[in-house]
Design a protein around this nucleic acid. Structure first.
Lengths: 339, 339
DNA sequence: AAAAGATATGGAAACGGTTACACCACCATG
DNA sequence: CATGGTGGTGTAACCGTTTCCATATCTTTT
């Protein structure tokens, strides 16, 4: 690998001069500049990022840690992040923790070695509930770099964050079902060990109450944001022979599990039961299923996260900043047809 | 930020000794080791990856470049890659080129600065067809690091690669439709500027011929692997009033576009027309659409890619290595019902 | 003509690690 | 008692950059 010294020797100048040419700093004679640039080009010289980082004491990388990249939501978020990273010539060091706290520990450690400028993080676990979570919080604090939390909040966080209106969107879901004429509502919750899981349950419950309806204990099905469990719960519900007129499914995977169960039990969505989900599902309308949902702009969440991180890097002492991504509504066949 | 020198001073030893403790190399007195480790822990000392890289002249990062991370396929691939990366303590430098060759140019340049150990790449464009593609090929060659191409092959590539049996799976798709009793077949192709697009067309065409059927020119619809175009083409087809008894849709997005058009035109899948796709679509069976497909294990493609890259790094001179991920078949209601 | 500025360049230290080498102490061996 | 290993540690060079400072030449100003 050719180095700056090689270039300097070939051009018959000193390293300092080559560096000045490369960085467009200080005075350089036009002829010298040309000559150096020529040599650089001919020899495909590319300066070493490590050496630069070491010398300048500043990095151009930022860390991105997500819990499951094979979930389209995080794919979208990453898309948004890369969009902005590109504009600012930042490179991304990526980690997928697969929802495992241990992997997050390792990721944070590696990022600390890398001296990244900042970190965008969607934690694998709640930072308040488990001892492992609290351990992680300490580790992150010790890292002492700019951090933006994305999507998964915990109680008493002091980092910047980009979050989704989990509570409000769920509240609205209840309202929508009420307006559509439903009286007995149900919910398949997400993982209640995560704040977003609890928020969605609480928002929905409050929405139910505020609309003069009731949410029976037996109509609350405790899921985990994954298909499998939602499928099992829904199946159990349908087999019991007694179910709400409409249910709220708390994320995309939960919705899919629910729909699968409904199909297997020959329950007609929109006729035998209505559903409103959180998160969109690809093309579901075109497939002819009446599926309403509340949802958000995932890519924008990614963009926001990096923008906020850059602002934080710019100004490390400014007060904590939170961005709530608003929910949107998509309606399709939620009205109660068989009152 | 605390450095190795600080640790050395605090422990009353030299940098060399601290380094020995850290790397578990050479002789270190047990008491000294304890003392150093204590100081390291107390002060949260983490060695700088840049300094190590510079000094050892070897990196522990590998580059990953994909064309669209908000496509579940690449999410899965990235999942597979991280799985293996984790086992080998490698960190990933990630780029999304958004199918733009210019972004790939920049990504390659940045990766070259970073001195990554190797690169996993799904190119944005064909490396043989356009001048931009050939430019990229040259740039990649100049990079002169271990490379594994994933999914998107081009003609005359000399890098290792993990590819999908595009030709064979498409050939099989034709065979399946023939066995199911169809006689007039159609295809909505992918982007023919990509080799995988051409391979799928050719495989299907050969399959049609070898089964004694014909593939009329007017039944070949030239798409681009995206929903929108597939939707338009399908709509045009249905509006023409004259269409094949079965069509082959070349990837997940193409299938969705097709299904959307069918629904809008009130064409009943499985009755008025049959379809076989490439790539699975989440839960489509549970939604009650008779949709057959040929598909592959995406995550395994990611795993394979990194494994092959590691082998290449291990042994840079070994002959070119190609891994073909086999296709699998999923059948659902493709039989011709209305002969 | 001297002083002051602008232009152009090189030398050398610094960044934070690793490592070859030298050195010393200790002990066993012939 | 010289010899030679083993254990333990420090010194200094080195990795590839940037940057401060010194120096030199050429212009311009006073």
């Amino acid at each position: 690998m050719i180095t700056i010294t090689d270039v300097a020797n070939l051009a018959g100048v000193s390293k300092a001069t080559v560096s000045r040419v490369l960085n467009n700093s200080g005075y350089v004679n036009e002829d010298t500049r040309k000559r150096v640039e020529q040599i650089v080009k001919e020899n495909h010289y590319v300066p070493s990022a490590s050496a630069i980082k070491l010398s300048k004491q500043e990095s151009t990388a930022i860390g991105v840690v997500v819990p499951e990249i094979d979930n389209l939501f995080y794919g979208d978020v990453l898309h948004g992040i890369t969009e902005i990273a590109d504009q600012h010539d930042l490179s991304l060091v990526f980690f997928d923790t697969q929802n495992k706290a241990e992997k997050e520990v390792r990721a944070l450690h590696t990022l600390s070695q890398q001296r990244v400028r900042g970190l965008i993080l969607a934690p694998a676990v709640d930072y308040s509930l488990s001892s492992l979570g609290r351990e992680l919080r300490k580790q992150l604090k010790a890292l002492d770099i700019p951090v933006v939390i994305v999507d998964r909040d915990s109680e008493n966080m002091h980092w910047d964050g980009v979050f989704y209106e989990s509570y409000q969107s769920s509240y609205r879901a209840a309202q929508i079902l009420h307006k559509a004429g439903h009286t007995r509502l149900g919910i398949i919750t997400g993982d209640l060990a995560l704040k977003i899981g609890r928020d969605r349950l609480q928002g929905f419950r409050q929405g139910v109450l505020d609309n003069g309806l009731e949410l029976r204990d037996e109509d609350i099905f405790e899921g985990d944001f994954l298909e499998e469990r939602a499928y099992e719960l829904s199946k159990k519900m349908f087999l019991s022979g007694d179910w709400p007129t409409a249910v709220y499914t708390c994320n995309n995977r939960t919705s899919l599990g629910f729909l699968k169960a409904a199909r297997e039990c020959k329950i007609r969505i929109g006729k035998d039961i209505a559903v409103i989900g959180n998160d969109r599902i690809a093309m579901i309308d075109q497939l002819g299923i009446p599926f309403s949902c509340v949802y958000r702009d995932n890519i924008e969440m990614g963009r926001m996260a990096l923008k906020m991180l850059l602002e934080r890097i710019e100004n490390p002492t400014r007060p904590r900043n939170i961005c709530m991504i608003p929910y949107q509504v998509h309606l399709c066949g939620t009205e109660k047809l068989n009152p």
